[in-house]
Write a protein that binds this DNA or RNA. Structure first.
Lengths: 349, 349
DNA sequence: TTGTAAGCGTTATCAA
DNA sequence: TTGATAACGCTTACAA
């Protein structure tokens, strides 16, 4: 391994000078700078990571704490974070807590389980002296991940931080619910059923609020019977479809693509077709949504964008000397992807 | 930050002794050991990562070089690697090269593009002094990723290493092709068409060989017209289905689920149904395969298992002092997942 | 503009 | 069984 000393000797200067040049200090003459840089490039010298870390305050490393890499949302978010960090000349280090892998769905309300993995992970990141930590959640909710008095810049991605001290970046579910409903109304629908997610869930609640706002805006009565709660799984979409179809709605807004697929199942079984006999909209824009027949119109989540945006915020807050970047909640808008599952119907209700 | 020196002072011993205890050396008395460990736990002392790295030979860190996190196969493989490493008390550091994100599909045959990202990544891992490097490919092929004289233990996961110096772990495509064909034969099929992947592709070739072996074993004539090549995309499945159906095959073996979905499209358009009018088998066990109607029988790839296995091999080779673990090609078997797209037909052809 | 030398927190060597 | 002490490769005062 080639060291800074060797470079220095080869150039006939001291290692301090080489260090200064490499670190962009300007108290060096142009000529020696050129000479040293030349040698550095030729030799492919790379500073020893550990020796640097031991002396430097700023490591230019961002730690990513991922709940689970296998959640469909995580890889694109992380890819976005990494892309942005690379652009801004930051390294990343990823800790995959594998929460789902360890405990399936049993850790949601079990703070002990989370902490048993999160605390060592944080400790590790701290020992690596990362400049900032980003907690990447597997699904949206309120999470208590960093203590109020945490001394490392940190933020929560794809979920809300319980402590108001940390910036959260989430999708704008209220707007999402609003947009979908607005779209259905614009297509002539006034009897719009909803297959929501689990009732207590944050995504569910916010999207319902958006749904209500859109209805109200168009002076459409809100019928509580048309809101059915599923559990995000396909089967529940199937079950709730039955209720809604019998209620005579002309369109169903499903809060994820899985449940929309369940609606398709129901429709097929009853010789009906999405986009003809009844209109269906999903949420997530997962791969299935394009495989369904007819293609499912759905509200896409800009996951890579969320990743990029969050890294941008993180690095900004690290760079700006003041806390100009105030802690806050950032909401990323979803984008409606039109396929063929919604039919335009006459204005006569 | 609390240092080893402070711990030493608190215990009235030297820092060397503390270090010895922490590193499991046995030349320490039980009594001081207990005393020191007590203080270490109380204070929550954690060794400085960088200071350790600068002195230690073995870092207990495995570097993962991922081609792209967004390939469907990558997250589970990586999760498997990380799980195994955690079990064996190794850290991992992941570098995501984002090859697809950068260049879509244009980097396959462009060694320069790959190297422009891979070399710096390797350099970085080297500066972190990782004990070993694992290259995680996004799709199977022969890759020239490490030079023959590479001085860090390395291996290739989900693809073949061009250099024979490095262990590769891949799926057993020949057996996969054989198993699927065997299964179809066992269900009474003798006219079995194939929608293969791209012709030059390694997965394609090996699976074709397996197909032929199964045919031969049952003394079934191999009809070259029944092998059609797609490009892994759904559309190509649709196109090739036409040819095969007109050839009168009773079953179609698609080399991925995407193309099988294309076959479903074709069948639907022609008022036929998989599992009734014609049998279909896919490959990959991607999410779509369960969403298709009827559920697609497909050959599942044990991605997490591949990850685990590969990490196991890596760590074994690091632990065994000799190169007991000889460089070689490890093949992981796929597992056929039966759903409803294959019909048992009479023995009379 | 450059060089000297003192650290940083460990581990490793060797003497006690 | 312990403890001095010399590295490790770098950054950073401070001196030249």
């Amino acid at each position: 391994m080639i060291t800074i000393k060797q470079i220095a000797r080869m150039c006939g200067v001291s290692s301090a000078t080489v260090s200064n040049i490499l670190n962009g200090k300007r108290n060096v003459s142009e000529s020696t700078k050129l000479r040293v840089l030349e040698v550095v490039n030729q030799t492919g010298y790379q500073p020893n990571y550990f020796a640097q870390g031991i002396r430097k305050r700023k490591t230019n490393v961002i730690g990513i704490l991922a709940e689970d890499l296998n959640q469909f949302s995580s890889p694109p978010i992380i890819e976005g974070i990494m892309a942005c960090c690379e652009d801004m000349n930051y390294r990343t280090i990823l800790i995959n807590m594998r929460l789902y892998d360890r405990w399936r769905n049993t850790w949601y309300d079990d703070d002990k389980k989370l902490k048993s993995v999160l605390n060592p992970a944080i400790k590790e990141l701290r020992s690596i002296k990362v400049d900032g930590m980003m907690y990447v959640a597997g699904h949206g909710r309120v999470i208590n991940c960093f203590p109020d008095d945490f001394d490392v810049p940190a933020m929560v991605v794809y979920a809300y931080s319980k402590s108001p001290k940390f910036t959260s970046i989430v999708i704008d579910d209220e707007k999402g619910g609003y947009d979908v409903t607005r779209y259905l109304i614009s297509m002539g629908h006034r009897k719009i059923g909803v297959i929501a997610g689990i009732a207590g869930n944050l995504h569910t609640q916010k999207r319902c609020e958006g749904y209500q706002r859109a209805l109200f805006e168009d002076q459409i009565l809100y019928n509580p019977d048309w809101i059915r709660y599923g559990d995000w799984e396909r089967e529940s979409g199937y079950q709730q479809a039955d209720k809604l179809v019998n209620e005579g709605v002309t369109a169903i807004f499903c809060m994820n693509d899985n449940m929309a697929a369940g609606v398709y199942d129901y429709l097929e079984e009853h010789n009906m077709k999405a986009g003809e006999d009844i209109s269906v909209v999903g949420y997530d824009n997962k791969e299935i949504s394009q495989y369904l027949k007819p293609g499912l119109t759905t509200n896409g989540i800009p996951l890579v964008g969320i990743g990029r945006k969050s890294a941008e915020i993180m690095i900004d807050s690290l760079t700006q000397d003041s806390d100009n970047a105030k802690q806050k909640i950032v909401k990323a808008p979803c984008r409606l992807i039109e396929r063929n599952s919604v039919k335009k119907i006459g204005q006569n209700r």
